[in-house]
Design a protein around this nucleic acid. Structure first.
Length: 289
DNA sequence: AGACGTACCTGACCGC
DNA sequence: TGCGGTCAGGTACGTC
């Protein structure tokens, strides 16, 4: 799925379009995504204003005037797309003439806003999820309460990460993908970060030295910030809210480069691909130790 | 408690 | 052309 930079790209694209807009109709096309959708979702969302969209880890948080927050996770293949195009047929919805939505097979939820714009949630694999919770209880939501610090926030320090890694018996890759330790990294960005820091993904987390943890922190912040600037990474599914591709895939140094030469200028190694706990890892066996 | 395998789902792609 | 196998950016849950 979208990792932190992709979710942030969606947030930044969506916010100026939906902020202060009222949801006049919500079309829920099926009872569930990965899990059952919240009870009475349509009636709880209709006629409420979207006050803000924030992000925690890979979750989008739509703060609503009703006092509730809509939590959205894009899973592996979820997209939020903004549509303002004109089609032939029109349907009266509120005071606007919305074009009849021509449903794609995987358009599961359509939000009609009072500006005449539709926001469509499309998700072929249906690994995504949504929930509604009182904004006051947001921090206690089961999806959010166990998350570790935001890597781009002010509470992500080398001391913290070093201590967490010391207690681990699993690999550094698995540990950095553990959302309880650090929130928002997935397979692609973890592998990029480990390549930059010349640490092998299979290395034991408790073997990583403090100096390396300091470099990891810098690399994590750097890679994420650059990926956000590039509008995320589009490999298969990811699209920005207007349907455009992100372009950070052009900047990937190791992910997906199986059998190709290592991009480290001092290294003659070849990128290896191995399965690690059911997921592909890409790394250079010459410069990553 | 932590580690790990599996399940959830569709679609694209590869080799035969 | 079709079929089976494998892969895909994530998270929760059961078991040890």
């Amino acid at each position: 799925m979208p990792e932190l930079p992709e979710v942030e790209t969606v947030r930044q694209g969506l916010l100026p379009i939906v902020k202060k807009k009222i949801i006049i109709k919500l079309d829920q096309r099926r009872p569930d995504l990965r899990w059952t959708l919240p009870k009475n979702m349509s009636s709880r969302l209709e006629n409420t204003k979207i006050c803000n969209i924030s992000r925690r880890s890979k979750y989008l948080l739509f703060q609503l005037s009703s006092g509730e927050t809509l939590i959205v996770h894009l899973g592996m293949s979820g997209r939020l797309l903004v549509l303002h195009d004109i089609e032939q047929t029109t349907t009266e919805v509120g005071s606007f003439n919305f074009k009849t939505h021509k449903y794609d097979k995987h358009d599961h939820i359509v939000m009609y806003l009072d500006s005449g714009i539709r926001v469509v949630y499309n998700d072929p694999r249906r690994f995504g999820a949504m929930d509604l919770i009182s904004t006051l209880n947001l921090d206690n939501h089961k999806w959010l309460k166990k998350l570790g610090p935001e890597p781009l926030g002010n509470y992500f320090f080398a001391d913290y990460l070093f201590e967490k890694l010391q207690k681990r018996k699993s690999s550094i890759k698995t540990s950095l993908m553990d959302q309880k330790i650090i929130a928002g990294l997935g397979n692609i960005y973890v592998l990029e970060v480990l390549w930059l820091c010349k640490i092998a993904p299979s290395r034991s987390a408790n073997d990583v030295k403090m100096i390396e943890v300091e470099r990891l922190i810098v690399a994590i912040r750097n890679v994420l910030a650059r990926a956000i600037k590039a509008g995320g990474t589009s490999l298969q599914d990811f699209r920005r809210v207007g349907g455009e591709l992100g372009y950070f895939q052009q900047s990937l140094q190791v992910y997906g480069r199986h059998k190709q030469q290592c991009k480290n200028i001092d290294c003659l190694g070849t990128i290896q691909r191995v399965k690690q706990l059911g997921r592909m890892s890409y790394y250079c066996d010459q410069c990553q130790k």
